[in-house]
Design a protein around this nucleic acid. Structure first.
Lengths: 258, 258
DNA sequence: GAGTGGTCTAGACCACCCC
DNA sequence: GGGTGGTCTAGACCACTCG
């Protein structure tokens, strides 16, 4: 056990804490969690410049190398962004980040662009079973549902059904949120202080339904790529469920395995 | 510029090399490339135990920390595997690795298992245009084509067409390779000294064709998930092209974005 | 107990950014 | 010029594995 393996000393707890809480994680992992907690708390809102490595290391009573390893871990998860000569800032959602982290649809030429969106409907109601399971909500919870079509190069290629709990996004279906912006994650972050940090996507092939036919101009029963995405916030709590159905005649979903 | 930024000194080249070859990469990146070159050369075949950090650091004339950063980089790309107390070994293909790195199809219960394979046909011929583009081969090149069906829990769920250049796998269609094993990448590695290190997958939804209908028991024109994969070796050269068409009624393709 | 990778430290210098 | 993160070093100790 390291001499100062337990950071709890810096949280004004006795050294006995190492017995009560068996936190034998490496120091850098503990520091990373403490930093993450401060991100979650809102102490450092997105876009904020963090204190320098030297300052943070001194504050936590660890070496600069250890603190760096903690920050590198956060950077690897895209929670902070580091720039040599400038500093470390809390990651902020913007169209570019949405594109690179969350949008995997490419044209046949291998190009990627942010789709335009057109809202078809937006309303609230009680959560249906599938959404309740995805968002881990009790049945009967009130949710907001958005149905939109998304286009790439002026061609409608996706229908998208989004479900979010009202509790987290109380007035998402009210002005002044309307018309809803194209990059929702940015809105979630600036208006509701919810940062989508991670997402889990499940892909299937499905047959086009009546909505798909009308909105995408595909044949009835045409094969579509269905992307079922659960978006998680900084703490890993599901905050949004969206099901996107894509016409993949001119686009494809790219995934690099390494 | 670092005092010893250029490793060339340890390759018995003059210090002037830093001017002729503008390799201003960090030391650890240069060391990583030198190590990778030794992996590519076959000096350390898969499964080999590498020399210890201390030995390698001394051999390259860098500190242990720098060498560690190089090895960590290789480990992040799954090219070596490190175990505390044991050592660092060159990554080897096996069913588990295939499953975790290259197989993304999950059951509805979220379980993943390696599929069984049944060969439908295997033969050679001239490369067709699509395969030539994927594998970067000149037209007319001789290739081997494999067509197989893959099953999960005794249910046929995938048809798979594989194309590889004969030049790399001269007798893949001959005994004693037959019957072909379930995990091809392992065979590529042990018999042909080709390590699949990375893959690029493009996903689309397609309609079932006659083969799919017959082999998977799906309806004509049923929606299938088509996975178009190009497998790359250690140097990034395409070595295999495979197109897998999946019945996703009971399985889905999982992708985690973070 | 010997050997391995994993963690941690302290200190130095470099590359970059901005004032 | 003074700040930041990025690299590199040397040395210490810890956790793990195996004979």
């Amino acid at each position: 056990m390291y001499l100062r393996n337990v950071v709890t000393g810096y949280r004004s707890m006795g050294t006995q804490a190492s017995n009560t809480t068996p936190s034998f994680k490496p120091l850098y992992a503990q520091v990373k969690e403490l930093l993450l907690a401060r991100l979650v708390s809102g102490e450092w809102p997105p876009g904020t410049m963090l204190p320098s490595e030297t300052e943070l290391a001194a504050a936590y009573g660890v070496s600069q190398g250890t603190l760096r390893k903690a920050l590198d871990g956060l950077a690897a998860e895209h929670l902070v962004v580091r720039h040599q000569g400038k500093g470390t800032i809390v990651a902020k959602h913007n169209p570019q980040r949405s594109l690179f982290q969350f949008f995997h649809l490419y044209s046949e030429q291998g190009e990627r662009q942010l789709p335009e969106s057109r809202i078809i409907s937006c309303g609230r109601g009680q959560v249906e079973p599938a959404a309740a399971a995805a968002l881990r909500l009790p049945s009967g919870t009130e949710v907001i549902r958005i149905f939109r079509v998304r286009s790439l190069s002026d061609r409608a290629v996706m229908t998208e059904r989004i479900t979010v709990p009202c509790a987290l996004f109380p007035d998402l279906d009210q002005p002044p949120q309307h018309p809803l912006p194209n990059t929702l994650y940015q809105l979630y972050q600036v208006r509701y202080r919810i940062t989508v940090a991670k997402a889990i996507e499940r892909l299937r092939a499905v047959a086009a339904n009546a909505d798909d036919v009308k909105l995408l101009g595909v044949d009835p029963k045409a094969p579509l790529l269905e992307i079922d995405r659960i978006a998680l916030d900084l703490e890993g709590t599901p905050v949004e469920w969206r099901v996107t159905r894509c016409d993949t005649r001119h686009h494809h979903y790219l995934n690099v395995l390494d």
